[in-house]
Nucleic acid binder design. Structure first.
Length: 200
DNA sequence: CCCTGATTCGC
DNA sequence: GCGAATCAGG
């Protein structure tokens, strides 16, 4: 592949936006990140953001990972979650034989930007106890990655309250192009009836 | 391990 | 000019 004007332009654009060389290479296709880096240097723009402007921008051009959008944060909930693990009774949960739970439940329903791999929030109320336990299990091992640290190989399962300050992503390694790690794939893609009616 | 950019150097 | 190989690091 040759460095046509258009390709160079895209390269410049993406590099300026803070995209990584590998991302740019992937986007362009037909080139490796080395090629991109080499070109970047030859173009003399190794220093991102040129002499002007150093906005310190988050630079999340096409993160493919729509962060769990913070839902209408009730001030109360927000502040509550600020110091304690998320302990919330989802809207219509009627689990009465237990209470001393630190519901790993992620914020209740939220607006998921359609598109990329992040949607299947486990409809908060209907998770099998087993799965629920594995989730807790995993949460202990989670690497607590921030949004920026996610890659295609890290579990994108959100943990905690997006509205609070204690929020991170699982980050364990995924297995085969799945968005989540083993355990989270399990709870995310439930046959939607695996949960049998819990006795009550 | 995964990833990042930087440099070198034969082509 | 190009980019694979390599280096140096997180």
């Amino acid at each position: 592949m040759a460095w046509t004007d258009e390709r160079v332009e895209l390269l410049k654009k993406m590099w300026t936006e803070g995209q990584s060389a590998s991302q740019i290479a992937k986007e362009l296709g037909g080139v490796t990140r080395n090629a991109v880096i080499g070109k970047v240097h030859r173009l003399g723009l190794s220093n991102r953001g040129g002499p002007e402007a150093e906005p310190e921008a988050p630079a999340a051009a096409e993160p493919a990972i729509p962060p769990a959008a913070a839902p209408a944060p009730e001030p109360v909930a927000a502040s509550a979650a600020a110091d304690a693990p998320v302990v919330e009774e989802p809207v219509e949960d009627e689990d009465d034989d237990e209470e001393e739970e630190e519901a790993p439940v992620i914020a209740r329903r939220q607006i998921v930007p359609a598109g990329q791999p992040l949607p299947p929030q486990p409809s908060a109320n209907e998770i099998s106890p087993e799965a629920l336990e594995t989730v807790r299990e995993v949460e202990r091992k989670s690497k607590k990655l921030s949004l920026m640290e996610l890659t295609e190989r890290t579990c994108k399962w959100p943990i905690g309250d997006p509205a609070g300050d204690n929020f991170w992503f699982c980050g364990l390694t995924t297995q085969s192009g799945k968005p989540y790690c083993e355990a989270h794939v399990g709870v995310a893609f439930q046959p939607m009836s695996s949960r049998r009616d819990r006795r009550r």
